[in-house]
Design a protein around this nucleic acid. Structure first.
Length: 269
DNA sequence: ATATGCACCTGTGTGC
DNA sequence: TGCACACAGGTGCATA
């Protein structure tokens, strides 16, 4: 679920929690992508939420004393604020209790997400990530240079977090349609002006998706429980057989790197 | 180094 | 109604 726009939506919905203090943590089921125990998180108790940061699909909750709670939401993870009087629900795996009586809860049915507490600024998970696809410093010329000699499809290349951080299956697919580039093309064979178009398409797609509060395909919600609505503006994703909004050609689906990919055969030559 | 396939999980929808 | 199967927002590892 959560690609960059969804994580950014979660981050923004959590900003009102700045200043809140963690009063307790509970891990009811710690078998996530990286197993986590209550003992690993308890040093956060008594600390205050100072700020919220995002890089790619990672959310960083900065606490007082330099502690950092690092979250990744995998395919189905969400971080929800439950008001006072809340009751635990299915797949609520990690709870962070707040001094207001509310709780910040990591809910993740498939358990591909992760949470861990770091004691300093060194975060191994962020090492090697490319620039943030939405707010990072890069341009079309940089994309062009990075893509040289790469034989993998441009779509799989865009989803490589070491190249750009934040694009997943939805937004890589949508950005390629906006750029007019066939997803299966070899990344290394992009022309310079195509790389420029791709850069613009990525930035605008992500900006519009963030503005729409992300995409709620089945059950994405921000921390307050509100859905996003960018899924109503998909141009190709999950639209196989339907007409392209630009030219009327039927959208096609094919599998690249094991992931469903959608494109317009006319607009994306 | 790079590319591919699969494993890790649960839930949902479809067809028989 | 039950069952088998395909598929779903992501990443990491083993294997060529």
């Amino acid at each position: 679920m959560p690609e960059l726009p969804e994580v950014e939506t979660i981050r923004r919905s959590l900003l009102p929690l700045r200043g809140a203090t963690l009063t307790d943590v509970e891990v009811t089921f710690g078998q996530l992508r990286r197993p986590v125990t209550k003992g690993q998180l308890t040093p956060a108790v008594g600390e205050r939420i100072v700020d919220l940061e995002r890089h790619g699909k990672y959310l960083l909750v900065h606490l007082s004393r330099g502690l950092v709670l690092l979250f990744h939401f995998g395919m189905t993870g969400t971080l929800l604020v439950r008001g006072p009087g809340w009751q635990p629900r299915t797949h609520d795996h990690v709870w962070l209790l707040l001094d207001s009586g509310a709780a910040l809860v990591l809910n993740d049915p498939r358990r591909f997400g992760l949470v861990r507490l770091a004691e300093g600024p060194e975060l191994d998970e962020l090492q090697g990530l490319g620039p943030d696809a939405w707010s990072g410093t890069y341009d079309g010329a940089w994309l062009f240079g990075r893509s040289r000699l790469r034989k993998t499809s441009v779509k799989n290349w865009l989803m490589d977090q070491r190249v750009l951080a934040g694009l997943g299956n939805i937004y890589a697919t949508e950005a390629l349609h906006r750029a007019g580039i066939r997803p299966g093309r070899a990344a290394g064979r992009l022309r310079r002006r195509e790389a420029e178009a791709l850069h613009l398409a990525i930035r605008t797609t992500l900006a519009e998706a963030i503005e729409a509060g992300g995409s709620s395909i089945s059950d994405f919600r921000d921390a307050r429980g509100y859905p996003g609505y960018f899924q109503h503006r998909f141009r190709v994703y999950e639209r196989a057989g339907e007409p392209c909004f630009a030219c009327g050609t039927r959208i096609r689906r094919r599998v690249l790197g094991g992931r469903s990919t959608f494109y317009c055969p006319t607009c994306q030559p």
